[in-house]
């Protein structure tokens, strides 16, 4: 197993606060890696730094051996490194089907000349993407809602839609920011089963999550962050047994 995504001595300060402070860790290919840590440990900031939403002050991020430090967010996404958001960002002006048709990269119809002068080819691409979108929507049980506005879905359905949107980009690595937050238990089971199936199909995952049940069930590796630094890493059983982790969460020695 090789290191797939490596973060080397990454630092990001907001004013006087170092949200990420010399953090070094790596994600292995084909596995689900959990990123846990108490509130304010810098988990979401780390995701923002990796996905190019925020520029780091120092350090390096590399993906598949390429340096992607400070690269624009949309370029990182088109390299196959896709993220979702803690608070769902559904595209409220689009229907469920449209938000999936939006995802695939390199759409000829997204250029002005393509949209105006290459309409048959564009329609062919759309049809092709629509078939893929239907397959994914059927898999997550949202096909019957295809023509609904994305804003009308429930919280859990929006999380599923966001994951589906990421899948249509044909990603290699998906970073999920709290996929379980605000999701009803039956839908959470759907999400967890889907993540496990996708891992078996070869997609790697990084998951930031507070739901320890999900982390324990899904993750092959777990990294614990505290105060912007990597604290401990190992299997879920290993890290939860580590006294430093208990101290970071509870603020006292175990």
């Amino acid at each position: 197993m090789t290191d797939y995504l490596t973060i080397d001595n990454l630092t990001k300060r907001f004013g006087g606060v170092a949200a990420i402070d010399g953090c070094t860790l790596s994600l292995r290919k084909g596995l689900i890696t959990g990123l846990i840590g108490p509130n304010g440990a810098g988990k979401t900031t780390l995701l923002n730094l990796i996905s190019g939403m925020v520029k780091p002050d120092a350090g390096r991020v590399s993906f598949e051996g390429h340096d992607i430090t400070g690269v624009a967010a949309h370029r990182i996404a088109s390299l196959g490194l896709v993220r979702t958001f803690q608070i769902v960002r559904e595209l409220s002006g689009l229907t469920v089907l449209e938000s999936l048709l939006l995802s695939p990269g390199h759409q000829m119809g997204e250029t002005v000349s393509g949209a105006l002068f290459r309409r048959p080819t564009v329609q062919e691409q759309e049809q092709h993407n629509a078939i893929k979108a239907r397959r994914i929507l059927a898999r997550i049980g949202l096909w019957h809602l295809a023509d609904q506005s994305a804003s009308q879905l429930s919280g859990g359905q929006k999380k599923l839609l966001e994951l589906a949107r990421a899948l249509l980009l044909e990603p290699k690595l998906i970073l999920l920011d709290e996929p379980a937050a605000g999701v009803s238990p039956p839908l959470l089971d759907v999400i967890m089963r889907l993540i496990r199936e996708l891992r078996d199909e070869g997609i790697s995952f990084g998951i930031v999550e507070h739901d320890m049940h999900l982390i324990a069930e899904l993750c092959d590796d777990v990294h614990v962050l505290a105060e912007g630094k990597m604290l401990v890493s190992g299997s879920f059983a290993e890290v939860t047994a580590d006294p430093r982790v208990v101290e970071a969460y509870l603020g006292m020695p175990a």
């Binding site: 967010a73 996404a77 689009l94 949209a115």
Partner: peptide
């Protein structure tokens, strides 16, 4: 024609949430 094309769709996505659009690889 533009509004009904994928170009119009990606513009609507950028209008609704530019951050989400860039996370999907769109050059906002």
């Amino acid at each position: 024609t533009l509004v009904r094309s994928p170009f119009g769709r990606v513009l609507r996505a950028v209008r609704d949430d530019a951050t989400a659009a860039s996370a999907l690889g769109k050059p906002v």
